[in-house]
Design a protein around this nucleic acid. Structure first.
Lengths: 121, 121
DNA sequence: TATGGTACAAACAAATTTGTAAGTAATGAC
DNA sequence: GTCATTACTTACAAATTTGTTTGTACCATA
């Protein structure tokens, strides 16, 4: 959300990349956290504090940032319950659900190729 | 490849994330360039200069770095022909080929959801 | 002897991402 | 009136990623 030079190569490259369907999708789930968060939410709704427990070392800041970004991209729906102490639940939207089979395949690739790598070292 | 603090939260988080099959795989193709490069190489072998033409604003340095990383991860095979002027060809390895169907699905997701977004704005 | 094309490498700089530490608001229990 | 709880926010700092610029090795050809 910081200001950015309009015509830096950085920005031109970014545009080029998000024009492509493939990398448009990839960017939605890029970075260190988004995929795991979506994956966790794939099994069930979770509150902020429950999510935090899933990732032992994530900072609250990071978790909030990622959730906000996912919300912005309409991959996650946020529901606030006006209680004290507050309760907030996060769940996947329909378009995020479509990612789940892809995650499965990625996961299968990972499982397989981690094994191959281990058997050689 | 730079030195890093061994037990920073950053590193702990990274370990946590690459332990997971899903994010292990995601990390192999993460960042701005790897997916597009693999995708281009999915159609045919390409030389360095041909790849560069595919991405109008990429710097040679970036392209080299990404190709090196992909080679390191055994997703890309590099062949040098001892000619003058030099010729180097890049092609996918068998394990990289397995990513292609996943890219297709990601691409389909992108196409669909970019359209949805455009129709609303 | 000078020039040109290919595929880089090195030094540096900018931009973005991720992490740290501290603080806030609301409210009901003690 | 103090404290604990939850889900954050803010200001700051560290780490990583990406980009810019300049330079190099190779030898064929002019």
């Amino acid at each position: 959300m910081t200001a950015r030079k309009e015509n830096s190569t950085y920005t031109l490259n970014e545009k080029f990349i998000t024009d492509c369907d493939l990398t448009y999708a990839a960017n939605k789930i890029g970075g260190r956290w988004k995929i795991v968060i979506l994956d966790k939410l794939g099994t069930r709704k979770l509150r902020f504090s429950e999510l935090k427990k899933e990732f032992p070392y994530i900072s609250e800041r990071m978790l909030t940032l990622q959730l906000r970004a996912l919300e912005q991209d309409e991959l996650v729906k946020r529901t606030v319950y006006a209680e004290v102490p507050p309760r907030v639940e996060y769940e996947l939207t329909p378009i995020a659900l479509e990612f789940l089979p892809i995650f499965c395949q990625l996961s299968a690739w990972g499982r397989k190729n981690k094994m191959l790598k281990n058997n050689r070292s």
